[in-house]
Design a protein around this nucleic acid. Structure first.
Lengths: 106, 106
DNA sequence: TGTGAACTATTAAACACTTAAACAATGAAT
DNA sequence: ATTCATTGTTTAAGTGTTTAATAGTTCACA
């Protein structure tokens, strides 16, 4: 494997976290597996769009899908996804706090 | 704050991980702070390009920058960035293994 | 055969990436 | 003080990628 190839694959997986709707879905699925229409009900928006985003996340390996009867159930492929997401949320919070502190000094 | 606003900000921070060069930089900075030209030497490519990627990461709060003498030193804003990145790398590895297992069955 | 659940295809608009060139800011040499 | 080299940053243009919206399709099953 070319030395840079791993960075491409890694970035590709990370990219799957880089959309508000996808973050919201990961947040939802932290608690438990849900089917497509359950997710749609919470997130709102178009079915086709949600479907596309779920497909992206599944292809990149951060979600798993299982078909049962007429419903498609989605879940996180690993707890590590939720952990990584939580860590990045903390990075965000710290960054917002820092910005705020700077603003208050002005 | 609008309920969805946090997802946007969160996705924005995650998006900063979604590029091969930026993953490579995070990998490098895990060990220690480095100055621009050190990073450039390892990653290769154009300096203007690297500069832009570093600026993005700094603005999104995942890197810090410090000027010393004629050099700009970059470092991770928090160990959490490295941790999150490592977790996502593990998610990738697991996903690659799974794909491989599927291929071998064929 | 009709219905509910979800996926796929298409396209225009928005956004991100690369490249090259111009532009600071600093420090050293004359 | 002036000039030069070094170290990056900024800007602008062109290209490529991602996203949202719409419409159409598939599949299971009652």
């Amino acid at each position: 494997m070319n030395g840079k190839k791993i960075f491409e694959l890694h970035a590709d997986v990370c990219k799957a976290l880089g959309h508000p709707l996808r973050i919201e879905v990961i947040d939802l699925l932290q608690k438990k597996e849900l089917c497509f229409s359950d997710i749609l009900e919470v997130t709102g928006g178009l079915k086709s769009n949600l479907s596309q985003h779920l497909t992206v996340m599944t292809k990149k390996g951060i979600l798993k899908m299982r078909r049962e009867g007429q419903c498609n159930y989605y879940s996180l492929s690993s707890k590590k996804v939720a952990q990584a997401c939580r860590l990045m949320r903390e990075v965000l919070i710290e960054s917002l706090k820092k910005q705020n502190a700077i603003l208050e000094k002005m």
